[in-house]
Design a protein around this nucleic acid. Structure first.
Length: 489
DNA sequence: AATGCCGGGCG
DNA sequence: CGCCCGGCATT
């Protein structure tokens, strides 16, 4: 099976490859390869592509392409993945504009948003071109939902990233979108008491005031995905903080990722489903009590009743009239239900933090308040149906986590690692497992393997990246079936 | 089934 | 050592 393939490699293909693919971590070795492949000396195990100005072009011409993305999202299987990393470079070299061959889907995959945030963020001049020819596909619904998620994010937080990157709004069929969006919106409406605008504006509109409507969000994300220049919310990160509620953009982002990857997810409810419903029913112990925690930044208020917390938010944070019990539902977005173990209640909310490490967002640039992050992930889903079962939110993030995890190992970006590696190194498995606040445990350090076998890294190694056919491109360690030195963990 | 890589063997 | 590979843990 592999005997013959060993050293019989298509050198031809190597030629076309850009040096980006090679990043030796061990100078002095792999001389052979060096001669053929322009090496970009990078420090250690850093794949070069994270350093190079990369030009991504995202072209979707039909539903098929969209489907591709999907598969990428869920699991790193399939052969498409490995070459993808390379193709990226090819693109870069060849000049994006002309890429249209099938291989291109590979790029698509690789360049899928999952990968972007980190990369794009740190690539000065990095530029992602998103050209969606296929009207009304994944992106939109995703965005719709995103809108829902973010509808209460204070204006300050979103505005900057609005349509500033849209040079040329692409023409489209408004009617098409209107339908879908109306549908999506309708669904969403039921999840929230807030107002919402169904108008699929694609033009960068400047809003007037107050309550951020979907309209804006829609136009924002909508256009950003349709226009040529895709900034991938990099701005989100750079947005100069906010006085706002802890609604991290990560949530939106993550969601966007997942949903946009869904090919024809014409069914928003499906998304809401996976977000809101926990297939695995959580059992609540008697000692557990549901509390309501204010998620407003720097506010750790915890009350035992939803009405109480709503009132708190309404009066303290929203500046509403304190007497009035009237609620427009907005408070819902600023608090979440938490389950508190009465036993450890005295220990304070600090016991909630355990989830933080898991959810640390990709861009560590500004580490958000640890305690807030995790909750901000819940808030949306939770808030959307504040009166629904509690711990749902707890499980929902697992999905997000998954995405994030994926991202982490997809883009061996330095900063990403810096942040996550340390704490979340361990099994992705435990990551998925809902962290029960009341328990400090986790970390089944006592893994099965009797001998001290290094836990397998989650990063894709040479073998996977280059594939058997390009074995010569593997790092020596990999070739020797040793621990990969290039894509270390 | 595919991967990742430890433990070992060989020159 | 450099180079390989059996075999097992993981995914």
């Amino acid at each position: 099976m592999n005997m013959e393939s060993k050293y019989i490699l298509e050198k031809s293909s190597v030629g076309t490859r850009v040096g980006g693919a090679e990043f030796n971590c061990r100078p002095g070795r792999s001389v052979l390869r060096d001669t053929r492949v322009p090496t970009v000396e990078k420090n250690g195990s850093m794949p070069a592509y994270t350093h190079r100005p990369v030009l991504y072009k995202f072209v979707i011409d039909g539903g098929s392409a969209a489907a591709e993305v999907k598969s990428e999202r869920t699991s790193p299987r399939g052969s498409g993945l490995s070459p993808a990393g390379r193709i990226l470079h090819d693109v870069e070299k060849t000049g994006v504009g002309d890429q249209k061959d099938t291989g291109f889907t590979g790029i698509l995959k690789r360049a899928s948003p999952t990968h972007c945030p980190g990369t794009n963020g740190q690539l000065p001049g990095g530029f992602m071109h998103l050209d969606i020819r296929n009207p009304g596909k994944p992106m939109e619904l995703a965005n719709n939902f995103r809108a829902a998620q973010g509808q209460h994010v204070p204006q300050t937080e979103r505005q900057p990233l609005a349509s500033s990157h849209i040079p040329v709004p692409r023409s489209r069929k408004p009617s098409d979108h209107a339908d879908k969006e109306v549908m999506a919106a309708t669904v969403l409406t039921s999840l929230s008491t807030s107002s919402l605008v169904l108008y699929p504006s694609s033009a960068p509109t400047v809003q007037e005031t107050a309550n951020k409507s979907w309209k804006e969000v829609l136009s924002t994300s909508y256009s950003s995905s349709t226009s040529g220049n895709w900034s991938w919310d990099a701005s989100d990160q750079s947005v100069p903080s906010t006085p706002s509620p802890p609604l991290t953009n990560d949530t939106n982002k993550n969601f966007l990722l997942s949903s946009q990857a869904d090919d024809v997810n014409e069914d928003v409810t499906e998304n809401t489903h996976f977000m809101f419903e926990d297939p695995i029913p959580r059992k609540r112990k008697n000692s557990m009590k549901v509390m309501f925690k204010c998620l407003w930044k720097n506010c750790e208020k915890v009350l035992s009743t939803s009405s109480g917390i709503q009132r708190h938010i309404r009066t303290v944070h929203l500046g509403r009239n304190s007497d009035s019990d009237y609620s427009d539902g907005e408070e819902d977005f600023y608090y979440s239900e938490i389950e508190v173990n009465m036993d450890s209640l005295t220990e304070g909310l600090s016991s909630l933090t355990p989830t933080s490490p898991t959810t640390a967002g990709p861009p560590p640039i500004f580490p958000p308040p640890l305690t807030d992050v995790p909750h901000s992930e819940h808030i949306n889903m939770n808030g959307s149906q504040s009166h629904a079962p509690t711990l749902l939110s707890q499980s929902a993030p697992s999905t997000l986590c998954h995405i994030r995890t994926d991202h982490a190992y997809q883009g061996p970006v330095t900063h990403v690692r810096t942040v996550s590696i340390g704490e979340k190194r361990q099994p992705a498995a435990s990551t998925h497992t809902t962290v029960n606040k009341s328990h400090t445990l986790i970390t089944p350090a006592t893994k099965s393997t009797p001998g001290t076998r290094k836990p397998r890294g989650e990063a894709k190694k040479c073998r996977k990246v280059y594939g058997m056919e390009k074995r010569e491109m593997w790092c020596t360690a990999c070739r020797w079936k040793k621990a990969c030195q290039r894509f270390t963990d």
